[in-house]
Amino acid sequence: MERKQLIVDNKAYEALAIFHNDETDKDYVVYTDLKADMTKGITLSCVICKEENENIIPIKIQDARDKEIAANLIRTVMVEINKYSKKN
């Protein structure tokens, strides 16, 4: 499986998944920082994105509906990661 990073505000993050929302017709990427200090917690983030030349280009979120979708996607990814981690 390919591994992808994206640069947000000049910092590299690990992309976990890209989702497409039919309502907004936008793509959203959920990502995290694997090098973060885990004792402070895990942070999952999400922005709108597009792909150019196999690179993930982040687009900052401004619309309220996009914020709602992004938050739901983060929670969904966390639930799935949680399930997977328990089974393996």
Partner: peptide, 29 residues
């Protein structure tokens, strides 16, 4: 009811297929 999101691309083996919450996880880095 709003339209949901579906996965477009998966990385690191997170092979979610179709609607959110469904799918098989494999080859997790």
């Amino acid at each position: 009811k709003k339209k949901g999101s579906k996965v477009v691309k998966i990385f690191l083996g997170m092979a979610l297929v179709g609607a959110i919450g469904l799918g098989v996880w494999s080859l997790f880095d």
